[in-house]
């Protein structure tokens, strides 16, 4: 027993080193910088800066846009994943492939593509001009940022939901129909509850990057709309590591709240996991 355990520990050591070097130690640094000033003295100031209006507003806007993007992603992804699940196997593989294809392209490139589409005198403007619509500008607005977020993060919502849905036994759905449930009753009473774990991980996978992004707001917000991610970036670039770290810590609180909320119903998650194993 002991030997086996020692062998396991040995095998795990590269990962332990990895976790220590690239996750734990950096986190400790963030903690250290977050609670100290430039001279290295303890302070709450980096954390409390968040109550100042410009920071507070950026955090509010970030939260709002992240929530909106997550909801839109969910509303788009769920029907799509459901349709995918019901397709025959050979087509399924192809469509899933098409869906992850954009993820092979660089994230920045995809976002710049949206800039080209939404820009003044961009692709969209030319297209709308054909129908006589001229002053339609959404570049540098929150709407443009939301479009970018939804486009970039949608696959992260589709895949976990799809993964849970394909594992639901057809006969479970047939059983609901057999017992008298119509399409909507089957969806809301059987399929949706059984796909909760997929929805939860989808929400985390979209909400977290949407809340922290600064690239999308930079490119599609024209640098005028500051999200909390942009502020952290600015502080770090301006050599104010302490304030950057403090804001990051505040941000982390919201991410942890989101994760607790998504995984709150633990019993349900476990049941479906067991179901999935069968």
């Amino acid at each position: 027993m002991n030997k086996a355990r020692r062998k396991n520990a040995l095998l795990a050591s590269p990962y332990i080193v990895w976790i220590a070097a690239f996750i734990i130690i950096p986190l400790l640094f963030i903690g250290y910088y977050g609670f100290t000033d430039r001279e290295g003295n303890f302070t709450w100031e980096n954390i409390t800066t968040i109550v100042r209006p410009e920071y507070y507003n950026a955090l509010g806007l970030s939260l709002l846009l992240a929530v909106i993007s997550t909801v839109i992603c969910l509303l788009l992804a769920y029907p799509l994943a459901y349709i995918l699940r019901n397709m025959n196997m050979s087509k399924q593989g192809f469509i899933v492939f098409v869906f992850i294809l954009p993820m092979w392209m660089n994230f920045l490139l995809r976002t710049y593509a949206w800039q080209a589409i939404l820009d003044i005198n961009g692709v969209l403007d030319h297209f709308l001009a054909m129908f006589g619509i001229t002053d339609f500008n959404i570049i540098n607005t929150p709407a443009a940022i939301v479009i970018g977020m939804v486009y970039d993060f949608l696959p992260f919502m589709v895949l976990p939901i799809y993964n849970v849905l394909v594992k639901i036994d057809d006969n479970v759905i047939n059983a609901a129909r057999d017992l008298g449930a119509n399409f909507w009753q089957t969806l809301f009473k059987i399929i949706l509850p059984l796909s909760k774990p997929g929805i939860a991980s989808g929400i985390i996978m979209v909400f977290v990057p949407a809340l922290t992004t600064f690239v999308i707001s930079d490119i599609l917000g024209g640098g005028k709309l500051l999200l909390i991610g942009n502020l952290v970036e600015n502080k770090v670039k301006a050599d104010n590591l302490n304030l950057g770290a403090g804001l990051s810590l505040v941000l982390m609180i919201f991410i942890i709240i989101n994760m607790l909320f998504s995984n709150g119903d633990d019993t349900d998650v476990n049941t479906v996991k067991k179901e999935v194993k069968k």
Binding site: V172, A176, D178, L194, K278
Partner: peptide, 11 residues
């Protein structure tokens, strides 16, 4: 119908 492998609602 009673289905193969029972098809109970596990949630």
């Amino acid at each position: 119908t009673v289905f193969q492998k029972y098809a109970l609602f596990t949630h």
